[in-house]
Nucleic acid binder design. Structure first.
Length: 709
DNA sequence: TATCTTCAGCTGTAT
DNA sequence: ACAGCTGAAGATAAA
């Protein structure tokens, strides 16, 4: 980090002169490259004909364009959903028989018939094609699919036995008791078959890692949600993380399953995880609990065991951590029943010893406390280390403990160091370089939002007024008439009488960790007419910013948004604040000089981020919503476009006496490490409206569509 | 095939 | 913070 802003450029807090940045033009990823419609075909494109929109999920893909998300929807389906969304009455328009059938297979085709009936598009295929037929016709055959098809409960004998024991157990009662394996099978069937093509590659890739983690996330959250709603008040919590992980292992939904020393393809240094099973499933660290992973233990060969990876979670005493150095304690010497004892030079300890002698690389995953879930941990993949030294130490209780000193190999991108830096900024033991404003919001948010420029001399983005929420909010007629809840202590997941639970399909939309449980096309939160308190689990998007965000200057994309805190997939990040305007105003603004950069337009068409299987249609909005953040807005106005975004939006409806307060909320698609830019897909206007310009996309993703508009 | 080992992750209870 | 509880994979021992 350069320090050229250190002393002179950063003004004392509170003395910032806003007039100095008054006339700075916003510079974002939005660079108009073509005047409006340069291509007549695209302006009237009857279907997804524009080159930059969507490709069929079944391919072929132009070079550089491939689906990144495990769930897809055809362009026609998107268009239909989009029409549905714009129906003023809020009634869904069924797909007419005359509607063109896509060559793409709608994701709904793979839905089990008993499933919830959202997404009416593509019905004709869904009901008539079995999975087996699809596999034949479209060439989607592969081992995983066949296994899923053959038997939903195909598991190893061992796991089957265990599952049966669980089913017989005393506590699996509940009105809607669901078999986890059946749920898992449903989820797997709802996946885009292309996912399996990626997963079946012997070598892991960025995509296979991303898919694996997303499927795990979906499975874990769904099982947790079901368990949550069925569990009696004082029952012991099951472990959806373990259950989901076991199912994934049994079905072979994993990548890099062959252990090896060194980097893991598709996993990048700096990647973060929130469960040990995630490390396991992507091939970073196989043991589900143990801290040392090693290979070469086959007794037939005389090969000595060698260490592959370690997880440093601070579980053993005397761990000293310092940036690129790590003192790691060996395993053993702790027994639940027998108490403490000397560690032995066997298993992982022996493997580490051998690796030390050979000078082998060892992957290091650092487990840190998760600020937002004090009982949980964040795992940071910190790349390759070498063991520099080892010795035997005495534990506090006087027993022998093996110690290993590991040093990080040079030349690797920073990972854990970023966490250390942020910690120093937090503790004020080191200043954040290039700070222009310590709090852009002037206290309007609960947490400060830093304004930073450590790349050039620009003093800030164009002037605007910070507004934390929506202005001119007009209640609109809801999709369904409804009433507020009367859950005095907050809505409970197992209260099927709560109208807010009912509106969300019988489940609370958020997990106990406030993560979005599965991505519905609309999220119904409690609102002004509900009697539940502000901290109700169903008001997640109403409590303002939670993460410490930072607006910062990029090298080539203008200003952007990122977070000091790690963000778990499914976390609420912020809403799109600004002034609600009507379509006439939108046209007006479009006639202006590129001011549409800060208009949120719900009627745009989005390349579907079908991350969650329950979501097979576009976001469903009772009426079109336009929000202008040109003059007033919040952090959301700084989020840039990307064709491989890590954030998505969903409409959130707050219950308000038979009317709806409509908001746009942003959620993390994946786990987002600190200081990584937050981006979402701006979507596409079809047909192109007069005055609209195509913009060249600078997202630099390998999946980049090239343009957006 | 059964047993053993293991730096998990909850949830509830006492500070 | 802390304790108590249940876990699943993979190595290893036993059969």
């Amino acid at each position: 980090m350069e320090h050229h802003f250190g002393q002179d450029a950063a003004p004392a807090s509170g003395s910032f002169d806003k007039t100095r940045v008054l006339n700075v033009k916003p510079l974002r990823t939005l660079v108009p490259v073509f005047p409006s419609p340069s291509n007549p075909a695209s302006s009237s494109a009857p279907q997804g004909g524009a080159p930059f929109v969507c490709v069929s999920p079944s391919g072929p893909f132009p070079s550089g364009v491939a689906p990144f998300y495990p769930f897809f929807i055809s362009p026609e389906s998107q268009r239909l959903s989009e029409q549905n969304a714009q129906t003023p009455t809020g009634q869904r328009v069924p797909a007419t028989p005359a509607a063109p059938i896509s060559t793409a297979v709608p994701i709904n085709s793979f839905r089990t018939p008993t499933g919830a009936t959202n997404g009416d598009v593509g019905t004709s295929r869904r009901s008539t094609r079995s999975r087996g037929q699809v596999a034949q016709e479209d060439g989607y055959s592969n081992a995983v699919i066949e296994e899923v098809e053959a038997d939903a409960t195909t598991v190893t004998k061992r796991s089957k036995r265990k599952l049966q024991n669980k089913i017989k157990g005393p506590q699996s009662v509940g009105s809607g008791d669901v078999d986890p394996d059946a749920v898992a099978a449903d989820i797997l069937k709802s996946l885009n078959p292309l996912v399996f093509n990626v997963l079946n590659q012997p070598e892991g890739s960025r995509d296979s890692v991303a898919y694996t983690l997303m499927i795990y996330e979906v499975m874990r959250r769904k099982l947790g949600q079901i368990e949550d709603s069925n569990r009696a008040a004082n029952a012991v919590a099951k472990r959806p993380d373990l259950r989901a992980g076991a199912i994934m292992m049994n079905k072979g939904i994993r990548t890099n399953s062959k252990k090896h020393i060194g980097l893991v393809s598709g996993v990048e240094i700096g990647d973060i995880f929130f469960f040990r099973f995630e490390l396991c499933l992507v091939g970073l660290h196989s043991p589900s609990m143990a801290g040392i992973d090693y290979i070469g233990t086959k007794t037939s060969q005389e090969e000595e065991p060698l260490a592959v990876s370690i997880v440093s979670s601070g579980g053993y005493e005397d761990d000293v951590e310092d940036g690129d150095l790590l003192i790691y304690s060996g395993q053993g010497g702790v027994n639940r029943d027998k108490g403490a004892s000397d560690q032995k030079l066997e298993r992982g300890n022996l493997a580490l010893d051998n690796s030390a002698h050979r000078g082998n690389e060892v992957r290091v995953i650092r487990g840190l406390k998760d600020l937002y879930h004090p009982t949980g941990k964040v795992y940071v993949y910190d790349g390759l280390y070498k063991i520099q030294d080892s010795w035997v130490d005495k534990s506090k209780s006087g027993f022998n403990v093996f110690k290993y000193k590991l040093g990080r190999l040079p030349g690797q991108p920073p990972a854990y160091m970023i966490w250390k830096s942020i910690q120093q900024w937090t503790e004020k033991s080191a200043p954040r370089a290039g700070v222009i404003l310590p709090d852009l919001t002037s206290g309007a948010e609960k947490v400060p939002v830093c304004l930073v420029n450590d790349v050039d001399a620009e003093k800030g983005p164009a002037y605007f007024t910070y507004l934390p929420n929506l202005k001119n909010l007009r209640p609109t007629a809801p999709l369904e008439s409804s009433i507020g809840c009367s859950c005095v202590g907050g809505c409970q997941p197992n209260n099927s009488n709560c109208p807010c639970v009912q509106k969300n399909g019988g489940y609370l939309p958020y997990s106990s960790a406030s993560l979005i449980a599965d991505l519905k096309s609309v999220i119904y939160e409690c609102g002004p007419s509900c009697q539940c308190p502000p901290n109700c689990r169903n008001r997640v998007s109403q409590s303002g910013l939670k993460f410490r965000l930072e607006v910062y200057k990029t090298k080539n994309k203008g200003w952007a948004l990122r977070s000091w805190d790690a963000i778990r997939a499914g976390s609420f990040i912020c809403e799109y604040a600004g002034e609600v305007i009507d379509s006439a105003r939108v046209e007006e603004e479009l006639g202006g000089d590129n001011l549409d950069d800060y208009i949120f337009d719900s009627t745009r068409i989005y390349q579907q981020l079908e991350v969650f299987p329950d979501d097979t249609e576009a976001p469903k909005i009772p009426s079109p919503l336009y929000i202008s953040a040109i003059n007033e807005g919040n952090v959301a106005r700084f989020m840039n476009h990307s064709c491989s975004p890590n954030v998505l939006w969903r409409p959130v409806i707050h219950e308000n006496k038979n009317f709806s307060d409509l908001h746009i909320a942003f959620y993390a698609i994946r786990h987002i490490p600190p200081m990584m830019e937050l981006t979402f897909d701006y979507g596409t206007v079809l047909p192109l409206k007069a005055g609209h310009r195509k913009k060249k996309c600078l997202c630099e993703s390998v999946k980049c569509r090239g343009y957006f508009c």
